[in-house]
Design a protein around this nucleic acid. Structure first.
Length: 397
RNA sequence: GCGGAUGUAGCUCAGUUGGUUAGAGCGUCGGGUUGUGGUUCCGAAGGCCGUGGGUUCAAUUCCCAUCAUUCGCC
């Protein structure tokens, strides 16, 4: 029996607030979901993560499959119990690694569309793709593995997150239009159907396990017709929600989201994969996105980049050496209520582990709290004014 | 006092059989990170090669002196 439910509370244009029910609790949306790739949010205990206001956490099937292995997590009682996280959990399908180990190897997702690094030579790639799945070498030990939609769903069912994603191919902005079409028709779309079929079978075979929701992932890169076509394709399948994924041009991110949202049923949730910059979050929510996940707040935090209401700063800059003010005097997170900029500066300069913890707490809190505020302003009908004020302050640096 | 060793970027050191803009690591300064990357990636600044002479077309490199540091001996 399905214990996944999504209810819309209020609407403001395409934006909406809602409540997502999962076996491990509810998520008030819009919501930012921090990423704990390897069943832990790096540098934080689950209690610390909860204190940032995070309602759920997203882990990665690829990483957990390689280590410790799905059987271990299943034997532990599932992802949430294994990592001692009391709330809802998500897993990404592993589709991202098709890109990141293949054409995108050693290259981050590039949202500018500019080629900053040449594509890796085929021999340097760790992954090769065909229409049935992807064969890849483990980044841990080089051993050979294969993912198909069926295998990804088996893994995700053993991991046992509340919300799972269909196995897809994430293309890049550098791929040709023809490649994007072929990717949709020959891989992402058939794989969505295969993921759904495997998911339904596995759900039926394990009636005693908590229900896992499955979101279909929409691709189509920067092309309107492909985005709409992919969204319609996913909308016609019996998914619990949708992942809006893939290569997105930053300049018109909101518009791309709108293309997809206009083709999707209103009553199902939409999750933005890998988005967390404040400007992007506003644009996506305004156009109908409900949840977000991203490693960025944690990763940039670990590297001393911290969010302030007046813009992002690098706390290792010399000007913070003797700045004894709180990191952000308007923030009520643990870091800002207890430590100075000078102390954070010192921790990073000294390479101390606590720097990662304090920075991650603040950055996750900052983005989670921003989305919480947006939710309240949707309910209050004041999103446009809030966005204008907030971004005016944020961009003044 | 005698003998030896060493003096090159803030630090620890490469280097030049004499020859165009003298290098590295660390440190300093700055930037990056959007479904992977827990100590990361990229970039920049910074040296009259201890000082003074000499040899040479040319010296950080050879010679002399001198100063400093250091080791050993008396």
């Amino acid at each position: 029996m399905k214990s996944f439910n999504f209810k819309i509370n209020s609407r403001l244009g395409l934006a909406r607030s809602g409540t997502m029910q999962t076996p491990h609790g509810t998520i008030e949306t819009p919501a930012f979901i921090p990423v704990g790739t390897q069943a832990t949010l790096k540098a934080l205990t689950p209690e610390q993560l909860a204190q940032t206001g995070a309602q759920a956490v997203l882990a990665n099937a690829y990483h957990l499959y390689l280590r410790p292995g799905p059987d271990i997590i299943e034997a532990a009682g599932g992802l949430a119990k294994f990592m001692n996280w009391a709330g809802p959990t998500f897993t990404d399908s592993g589709g991202f690694q098709v890109m990141s180990l293949g054409t995108g190897f050693k290259k981050v997702i590039d949202m500018s569309g500019e080629v900053t690094q040449p594509d890796p030579k085929p021999k340097d790639r760790l992954a090769s793709i065909d229409n049935d799945g992807v064969t890849f070498k483990s980044h841990l030990d080089g051993s050979r593995h294969r993912f198909t939609p069926e295998i990804s769903m088996q893994i995700q069912h053993k991991i046992g997150a509340d919300i799972t994603f269909a196995f897809d191919e994430l293309t890049t902005l550098h791929d040709s239009r023809q490649y994007q079409e072929e990717s949709l028709e020959q891989r992402t779309h058939p794989w969505a159907e295969q993921s759904l079929a495997a998911h339904q079978r596995l759900t039926k075979e394990n009636p005693d396990k908590p229900y896992q929701a499955l979101f279909g992932v929409i691709q189509g890169a920067q092309y309107e017709d492909l985005r709409r076509q992919s969204a319609r394709f996913m909308a016609d399948l019996d998914f619990d929600g949708f992942g809006l994924g893939g290569a997105l041009t930053k300049e018109n991110l909101g518009e791309i989201v709108r293309w997809m949202v206009e083709e999707l049923p209103e009553e199902k949730p939409r999750h933005m994969l890998g988005i967390s910059e404040p400007e992007d979050i506003f644009d996506c929510i305004e156009n109908g996105a409900d949840t977000f996940d991203c490693v960025s707040p944690a990763r940039i935090g670990r590297n001393a980049a911290l969010y302030l209401p007046t813009g992002r700063v690098n706390i290792t800059n010399a000007k913070y050496k003797a700045d004894f003010a709180p990191l952000d005097e308007t923030c009520d997170c643990y870091t800002c209520t207890h430590y100075s900029r000078a102390y954070l500066h010192h921790l990073f300069k000294a390479g101390e582990l606590l720097s990662n913890t304090l920075a991650t707490i603040h950055n996750e809190h900052f983005i989670v709290h921003l989305v919480d505020q947006i939710r309240h302003h949707i309910d209050a009908g004041s999103l446009a004014e809030f966005k204008k004020d907030w971004l005016t302050t944020y961009r003044q640096l």
